[in-house]
């Protein structure tokens, strides 16, 4: 049962969309139950009154990262079959900055806005409408940004390779950094005045 199971043909391709719905449900439940359906809870990370985003986000990334590395080490998953997002340095930075400004204005990112929308938050509905308009504007204006969109292409590059270390050493360092951040965040949370929301 070497994964990824659907691309390897262990599970037929026809099941792909069924898994999409089931995994999506797991994603939605995890986000909502952690409190990602509240913009004021999410934004608390930047003011120090609630670090739930920092804690959930980094715990999740590390869990999946370590899990997949172990599966690969044990021969249970073929790492080369996993989709590695290709790197376009310029557009990753510029796009990230634009998203960061949007994040601080709207209090959601796309995934969390869907969760908030699902439990009845009308601000999340408006945020989602904003996304539709934004993507439409981007698509129509694409010829203007096309050059930047494609510049700085490095292909599916691994962060550990670009830092010249092994994947496992990088993962170890990331865990150390994350645990340090969790301690720091909890310390700040205790000092900062509580915000009622």
């Amino acid at each position: 049962m070497v994964g990824p199971l659907i691309p390897m043909g262990v599970i037929p391709q026809a099941w792909d969309n069924v898994f999409a719905v089931l995994l999506g449900m797991g994603f939605g439940i995890s986000l909502e139950a952690s409190g990602f359906s509240s913009s004021r809870k999410i934004i608390g990370t930047f003011f120090g009154y609630d670090f739930v985003v920092l804690k959930v986000f980094f715990t999740a990334a590390i869990t999946a990262l370590l899990g997949l590395l172990y599966f690969s080490y044990l021969g249970w998953v073929d790492y080369s079959m996993l989709y590695i997002q290709p790197t376009f340095v310029t557009s990753a930075i510029v796009g990230g900055i634009v998203m960061g400004i949007g994040f601080s204005m709207g209090g959601y990112c796309p995934g969390t806005s869907f969760c908030a929308l699902a439990i009845g938050k009308l601000d999340a509905l408006v945020f989602t409408i904003g996304m539709l308009i934004g993507i439409f504007i981007f698509s129509e204006a694409f010829p203007i940004v096309e050059k930047m969109y494609n510049s700085g292409s490095l292909g599916p590059k691994l962060v550990s390779d670009s830092l010249g270390m092994s994947a496992s050493l990088f993962a170890f360092l990331l865990v150390v950094i994350a645990v340090g951040m969790f301690y720091g965040a909890t310390w700040v949370e205790r000092k900062v005045k509580k915000v009622d929301y």
Partner: peptide
């Protein structure tokens, strides 16, 4: 919220993905 969504829409297309 509308402005934030609009920027997130634009940024996510540039970066080829969101958070």
């Amino acid at each position: 919220a509308l402005g934030g969504g609009l920027l997130f829409g634009i940024g996510s297309q540039l970066a080829k993905g969101c958070t």
